[in-house]
Amino acid sequence: MEYVLIYILNGLYFTSFVFLTSLGLNIILGVMGILNLAHGALYAIGAFVAAWLIGSMFAGMSVLLILAGGLVAAIGIAGACGLLMEISFIRPMYNRTLEYQLLITFGAMLAVEGLIKMIWGGQSYYASAPFVSMGSIEIVGSVYPVYFIFAMVLSFATGFGLWLLLSKTRLGIMLRAISMDREMAQAMGIRIKWFNTLAFALGAGLAGLAGALIIPTTPATLGIGMDPLIRAFIVVVIGGLGSLRGALLGSLIVGETRSFGVAYFPEIELPLLFLVAVVILVVKPEGLFGSK
């Protein structure tokens, strides 16, 4: 029983990454109605940029500084990639049918994965200096790495910041207006074209941040974005498409199911997650916070 608290904490840690990944996916889906299959590839870009910067530039500099540099660079480069993608080939897709929208992001996923391989080669990149140098502390009777707490705080803070952006600022209100009714927003004089670009770049930047944030704990390898993408899909499915609250609750379900699944039902941890998702779907087809 004494370990229950630490299991909850582990679940929260996992939640924080799933949440951060699903945020970007959800924004793009909500504002533009496009399911971005290349989201995992953007996540991978963030991971590689961070691993490359932190791993090779670490010598002699302060850990926090280099970590911050790595995270910002990852957001910037992944965001820029998103920007380029949107302008060059996503934009002509808005008035095309669904199969083309999905297929073009599928193609983008393959191309970006290939591009990463061209730039960084096939091998893994290690950059664990921030994780190691932050050390561990005693928490609820267990040893716990400080970096995990840092990652959790950062990712939930990002979620909160995004919520502020969407609900309190003019920009956010316009974005929400677009996601509710595109034509009406356009009629009201919102320049949809640029908001699309902005939303896509924002989503891509968030994917890059998620990828960069995980790097100190694990090497960057090709295909690193596949599993987060699938988990983010599950979050979006059970939380409801385009809902921020849904993303948070969905991530919590995914994270805690995993943590307790590993502890108590290690044999069926993964099917358990899908089972939960399917049950939610059968009971509430539009997801927990979705609207039809």
Partner: peptide
């Protein structure tokens, strides 16, 4: 006392490590 089966390419072993510790 315990057999754990993390998925291949798992990025987060916290749940498994806690479980081993317990």
């Amino acid at each position: 006392v315990k057999t754990l089966w993390p998925q291949i390419y798992t990025k987060d072993y916290t749940a498994h490590i806690s479980s081993l510790l317990s």
